[in-house]
Computed example of a mutant assay.
Amino acid sequence: MPFDFEELGLGVMLIKPKVFPDNRGYFKEVFKESEFKKMGIPIPLQVNVSYSKRGVIRGLHYQLQPKEQGKIVTVLKGKILDVAVDVRRSSQNFGKYVYTELNEENHFMLWIPPGFAHGFQALKDSVVLYFVTHNEYSPQHERCINYSYVKEWNKNEVILSDKDAKCPPIDKAEVFE
């Protein structure tokens, strides 16, 4: 099996691909439909890449129904603290979040299902790859919650977009019912 899957909690899954190193470098599978289907992870519809300088926080973003998205996130270069926040008001876990470090050495990926806000802080200059499921990007359905909700981020070293700086706190945000 080319992947190990580990439940982090709240329905968020840590994906650990098998890495095959040799004297030339390494090889790994990043997505295999049959393996991901077994774990209930849908086929990606859109693939995105971002570059973030150390200290950048992107998020916490999500899209409302009917354009909700799931995301598979991995780091190609660098290191991030990746976070998923349950924004489903009807969930017993509403407002709870999980986080993990993703980096170029551990090769880990994070599956974030629809109904979660997603964000990360770059702990080093980082290139992040996102596989987006369910729906393509829809600006009119995009929402966010304020980055300060996550206590584990390094607040002494923060670079934000103007848009992310204006995100409301979770209790004032439009969320899933």
Rank of each mutant, 00 (worst) to 15 (best):
M1L: 13
P2C: 08
P2Q: 05
F3A: 03
D4H: 12
D4F: 09
E6A: 10
E7D: 15
L8K: 14
G9K: 03
G9M: 06
G11F: 07
V12K: 03
V12T: 02
M13W: 03
L14D: 02
I15W: 04
I15C: 07
P17S: 12
K18T: 07
V19E: 04
V19G: 13
F20A: 10
P21K: 15
P21G: 10
P21Q: 15
D22C: 08
N23F: 15
N23I: 11
R24N: 02
Y26M: 13
Y26T: 09
K28D: 08
E33C: 08
S34P: 09
K37Q: 15
K38F: 12
K38S: 14
G40C: 13
I41W: 00
P42C: 06
Q46H: 03
N48L: 13
S52F: 02
K53G: 05
K53Y: 06
I57L: 06
I57T: 08
I57V: 13
G59D: 02
G59T: 02
L64K: 12
Q65P: 12
P66M: 13
P66I: 05
K67Y: 14
K67Q: 10
K67G: 04
E68Y: 11
G70P: 00
I72A: 03
I72F: 01
T74F: 15
T74I: 11
V75E: 00
L76Q: 14
L76G: 13
L76P: 08
L76A: 11
K77I: 14
K79E: 08
L81G: 06
D82H: 08
A84H: 01
A84W: 04
V85T: 03
D86N: 14
V87I: 08
R88N: 04
S90H: 13
N93F: 07
F94Q: 02
F94D: 02
F94S: 04
F94R: 11
G95F: 12
V98Y: 04
V98L: 09
Y99C: 13
T100N: 06
T100A: 11
T100M: 02
T100W: 00
E101D: 03
L102T: 00
N106F: 07
H107A: 14
H107M: 09
F108I: 05
W111F: 15
I112M: 03
P114A: 09
G115M: 08
F116E: 02
H118S: 00
L123H: 01
K124M: 08
K124G: 00
D125F: 07
S126R: 00
S126P: 04
V127A: 07
V128Y: 00
V128C: 12
Y130F: 07
T133V: 10
Y137R: 07
S138A: 15
P139S: 11
P139C: 12
Q140E: 13
H141E: 11
E142H: 12
C144M: 11
N146D: 09
N146H: 15
S148N: 15
Y149W: 05
V150A: 01
V150K: 01
K151H: 14
W153A: 06
K155P: 07
N156T: 03
E157A: 12
V158N: 11
I159A: 07
K163F: 05
K163R: 05
K166S: 14
C167G: 08
C167Y: 02
P168E: 00
P168M: 07
P169Y: 10
I170A: 03
I170Q: 01
A173G: 05
E174Q: 13
E174G: 11
E177N: 09
